[in-house]
Design a protein around this nucleic acid. Structure first.
Length: 640
RNA sequence: GCUGCUGUGGCUCAGGGGUAGAGCACGUCCUUGGUAAGGACGAGGUCAUGGGUUCAAAUCCCAUCAGCAGCUCCA
């Protein structure tokens, strides 16, 4: 007798062992889709898996996240089969399912082209049409190694040798066998609508010193409709790309003649950045910060002392010779704040000192990692260094979290992920300072997060070289997370630079430093912001808030008068005086994503009004200018 | 940095061993038009840069620079 507990308190009894498929057939799953695999006490198994003992069983449906994962994985196998048929000498790497799709790595001794992908797709369709069942088999490790050696699959041999288990499993479909834990769909026919998307190089096992394999990316869904929906989404995401919008809206550029990763902010991008920076400064003064400025370059000895030369060298530009002295372009601002702190003796009464700085730094990033505004070589951190006593540390961290949340909220970012970045095990050489201090620092960060009741993930090996950090990730159009705000606790640089204060006991004590940003870097933040709003900036950030569109040139004077009035009120506006029809001017203003277009003609001049066309609602009819100005002022104030 | 792809007027892109094309944008003129493209004419490019092959290179080859997709890195 086998007792099987199903979700919803259902229990079924079978006389003998029974396959997952049988159980699935016995219960109605019609309204949930079709079963693709089973889950026994959280272990995924094939439909053909025979259940022999009492257990809990969940059915995995083809339209569930887990079901899709299995489907993607199976499609990767089919792709490998197709590639093996077309290129018999291929050496197979790995082929997992990933978010939204799958990939498989191949060593072909040559590179693949778009045409190759089409051929592979066709072969895959043939395999799917042949309705080949996926069959699971198991064999002893040693036999498996021999089998793969015989097939001349060196990467697979390496994989098996890395496994601990004495038995390894394979999956076979048709003429193709692959090392795999499973589970898989029952047959190739179950694979719905797929598409191969791209091919790129990828190092074997992600190691730079290993050979580079050809990685083919693809995606698959249960139906063509869903696939098309996904492909459309990819298109939409592309349109949102800040690199496209940045050019279209004339916000910024990169210049070949100047160098990669160096941003030129055009006037319109400059306006946005300026508004953000003004807002940032005001908010900091409100919260008890002082703002400072420091140089962009300093003697190499400073960077030796700070530890940057030992721990951060790879990200720094080479030294510059100045009259026989070596200088370094700063990759961080912290040593400068420390030098400034040390210009006098500080009392415990002076602390905390919160010093903010929009500090431009330069980091050497390898050419291949540069990415629009999100990864650049010169950028401005909205930095701050807080010098405090140990007893003030937690409150300071909480204060920074508050500020970071307020900032992100103000810019409409409702979703972000929080990580607690700590040292990695066994990589002590990457970090400076003694362990106790690291424990203290992590403790302070963690307790602040707990006090704020924020969810976070602990990330090992992600700390800065001088201390652990809270890292807040904001997302780009492709869903990739980019580090924005960061809060780092540092007991180490105060040690290195001997940064003290006199406590009430009259003795010197080491200060604790908090390094933090609440936006991250202006460049990256703007990049994320562009994608977040898809270029439709809210009124308070829009480079041009209002455009006046005279219907004919005899209305131009009135248009200019309105423009001047708006300018007096601090509203950013322009007036389209071109000899063009109104529909044309409206189209251009719309494409430029200007929040308000004011159309003026005979009627408006006579009534002293403006006809409002808003980006959100379209034609809203005529209102007196004063009423429109009030509306704009209120919307700006509300950051709506 | 690595693998692959790409680089043609401000933008999007076609072409391709014999001395450059389209649409949009821009300028002038006609038109004075009421809520997403009126018309005509015109100007604008050493085809990324530097070498090489060739009678001849924007086109083929090499290098460099830059961009794109990944990998690695960074955080």
């Amino acid at each position: 007798m086998v007792k099987i507990k199903l979700p919803g308190g259902i229990e079924r009894k079978y006389k003998d062992k029974v396959t997952v498929r049988n159980v699935a057939n016995d219960i109605s799953t019609k309204n949930r889709g079709s079963a693709i695999a089973g889950k026994l006490n959280s272990t995924l198994v094939d439909l053909d898996y025979a259940i022999e003992t009492d257990t809990k069983l969940d059915l995995v449906m083809d339209n569930s996240e887990e079901g899709l994962e299995i489907l993607r994985h199976s499609t990767a196998h089919v792709m490998a089969q197709a590639v093996t048929r077309l290129y018999p000498d291929v050496k197979l790497g790995i082929g997992p399912s990933i978010k939204d799709g799958f990939y498989y790595d191949f060593d072909l001794g040559r590179t693949l082209t778009q045409e190759d992908l089409e051929k592979i797709e066709e072969e895959m369709k043939r395999i799917i049409g042949a309705d080949e069942p996926f069959k699971r088999s198991e064999e002893p490790r040693e036999d498996a190694i021999k089998r793969m050696e015989k097939l001349n699959q060196r990467y697979k041999v390496e994989l098996i040798k890395g496994l601990q288990d004495q038995t390894v499993s394979f999956y076979t479909q048709g003429d193709f066998i692959d090392l795999c834990k499973g589970p898989h769909v029952s047959s190739t026919k179950k694979i719905g609508a797929f598409k191969l998307l791209s091919v790129a190089g990828a190092y074997w096992r992600g190691k730079e010193t290993n050979p580079m394999l050809q990685r083919i990316y693809g995606t698959v869904f249960t139906s063509k409709k869903e696939l098309d929906k996904h492909l459309k989404l990819l298109e939409e995401i592309k349109k949102r790309d800040h690199r496209k919008i940045g050019v279209a809206l004339d916000l910024y550029s990169f210049q070949d003649n100047a160098g990669a990763g160096l941003v030129f902010w055009h006037p319109k991008g400059g306006v946005i950045r300026n508004i953000i920076e003004t807002f940032w400064r005001e908010e900091h003064y409100k919260r008890g910060y002082d703002l400072i400025y420091s140089p962009h370059i300093a003697k190499i000895d400073l960077w030796k002392k700070s530890g940057h030369l030992d721990f951060y060298k790879e990200s720094m530009f080479s030294p510059i010779d100045v009259e026989g002295q070596e200088y370094i372009l700063r990759p961080m601002n912290c040593p400068f704040a420390i030098l400034m702190y040390k210009t006098k003796i500080r009392s415990y009464r002076d602390l905390p000192l919160r010093w903010g700085e929009l500090g431009t730094v330069y980091r050497y990033e390898r050419s291949g990692v540069l990415h629009g505004l999100l990864r650049v070589r010169g950028f401005t951190q909205d930095d701050s260094h807080i010098f405090c006593r140990p007893d003030q540390l937690k409150d300071e961290i909480v204060g920074v979290i508050d500020l970071a949340q307020y900032m992100l909220e103000s810019f409409g970012f409702k979703e972000y992920e929080i990580e607690l970045a700590v040292r990695g095990m066994g990589e002590e050489e990457k970090y400076t300072g003694d362990s106790e201090k690291w424990v203290l620092a992590e403790e302070a960060l963690r307790s602040a997060l707990e006090e704020k009741e924020l969810d976070f993930v602990r990330m090992e090996g992600e700390a800065k070289f001088y201390g652990p950090a809270i890292d807040i990730k904001i997302k780009d159009a492709l869903g990739r997370g980019w580090q924005g705000p960061t809060i780092q606790v540092d007991f180490n640089l105060p040690e290195r630079f001997d940064v003290n204060y006199i406590d009430s006991d009259g003795l010197q004590h080491k200060v604790v430093m908090v390094h933090r940003t609440v936006l991250g870097a202006m460049e990256r933040f703007l990049g994320c912001l562009i994608e977040h709003y898809a270029g439709d900036f809210p009124l308070w950030l829009a480079p041009t808030q209002v455009r006046i569109l005279p219907i004919t040139d005899k209305h131009n004077d009135y248009g200019i008068r309105i423009k001047n009035k708006l300018s007096e009120m601090g509203i950013r506006s322009d007036c389209d005086l071109r000899n063009a029809k109104i529909g044309y001017k409206i189209r251009e203003g719309t494409l430029e994503k200007i929040p308000y277009l004011l159309i003026i003609g005979d009627k408006e001049i006579e009534e002293e009004t403006v006809s409002v066309r808003s980006r959100k609602k379209g034609n809203e009819g005529s209102v007196p200018l004063s009423q429109f100005i009030e509306r704009v002022e209120k919307t700006v104030k509300d950051k709506a």
